[in-house]
């Protein structure tokens, strides 16, 4: 039971980072219908911007987070406008290939600039363990969970009460009808993409304080984020929160009770199983497209 509590806590920490990455992806993949493999590289870049902020510029953790968000919003904006929109206009399926190219491009540019060594972003929080009952955690790990909770709440508020949220929800219901109703689909698209990139970057920045960041840091987590989005149902914010935490916890339990080697496989087996039984996703609605 003591072990179980610790496994659970570990799972919540890792799951929180999954939630942030998956939220960005569920906006981009679930609503804009863009399969963006470079989403993992947004996560990685966020980590490096945090390293630059805290180590090179020395501006402290909170200003660094602001820096991460600003840089990632700009980058997301630029990539959507300069690469994805022009390609999607001609042939939307090609976006997958372009994003795959972008992923290789970003990874290797960073490898050239920063080198392959892992880098740590400084959180400025006290080191050492905090013991809560039988659970050991660090202040950095607690901060990840707390900041993820704050971000998720903020996002939910934005989606509920602002024009962008309203338009997004309309688009996720039916893009064509949304356009007919006078929603500026292009503007919503670019704002959504920028928010998604910023969320991934934020997750990367937070995780870089604990797990360090390397040029290939995003390649596995983007696959897991796709798994979460599919399990959660395309574009479902609440679903992504639940599925992200669940995946983190399940992985932690599998590692603890069955062994580390099986951790990365569970999510994929799960998604195959779910899609076999429910081809439209766990919470998806059956639609027939012609």
């Amino acid at each position: 039971m003591i072990l179980f509590q610790q496994f659970l806590a570990n799972g919540v920490v890792v799951g929180s980072s999954y939630v942030l990455v998956a939220l960005g992806l569920t906006l981009i993949f679930g609503i804009l219908k863009i399969v963006n493999f470079a989403h993992g590289e947004f996560y990685m870049l966020g980590g490096y911007v945090a390293v630059v902020g805290t180590q090179v510029l020395g501006i402290g953790p909170l200003p660094s987070i602001v820096l991460v968000i600003v840089v990632m919003v700009m980058l997301g904006w630029f990539i959507e406008r300069a690469i994805f929109v022009p390609i999607a206009k001609k042939d939307p399926t090609n976006v997958i290939i372009a994003s795959f190219g972008l992923s290789i491009l970003l990874q290797n540019i960073v490898l050239k600039i920063a080198g392959p060594e892992p880098m740590l972003a400084r959180s400025g929080l006290p080191r050492g363990a905090i013991q809560i009952g039988n659970i050991f955690l660090t202040s950095e790990r607690l901060a990840i969970v707390a900041l993820a909770a704050v971000t998720v709440t903020a996002l939910l508020v934005v989606l509920k009460y602002t024009w962008i949220g309203l338009s997004l929800r309309a688009m996720s219901e039916n893009a064509t009808v949304a356009r007919i109703c006078g929603i500026n689909v292009r503007r919503v698209g670019v704002v959504t993409f920028a928010i998604g990139a910023a969320l991934a970057g934020l997750a990367g920045a937070l995780m870089a304080t604990v797990f360090t960041v390397q040029p290939n840091a995003g390649s596995l987590i983007v696959m897991k984020a796709f798994v979460i989005v599919v399990l959660a149902g395309m574009g479902s914010i609440e679903g992504a929160i639940i599925a992200g935490l669940a995946l983190g916890i399940v992985e932690s339990l599998v590692t603890g009770y069955l062994g580390n080697g099986l951790r990365d496989i569970v999510g994929f087996i799960f998604v195959m199983g779910v899609l076999t039984i429910r081809p439209q996703g766990l919470f998806g609605i059956q639609t027939d497209r012609s």
Binding site: N10, V13, F211, T212, N216, L253, G259, N260
Partner: peptide
């Protein structure tokens, strides 16, 4: 206990 190359989180194994 085996881990995959590049793994970063060992809390569960170490527990």
């Amino acid at each position: 206990e085996a881990y995959n190359p590049g793994d970063k989180d060992f809390y569960s194994s170490l527990t």
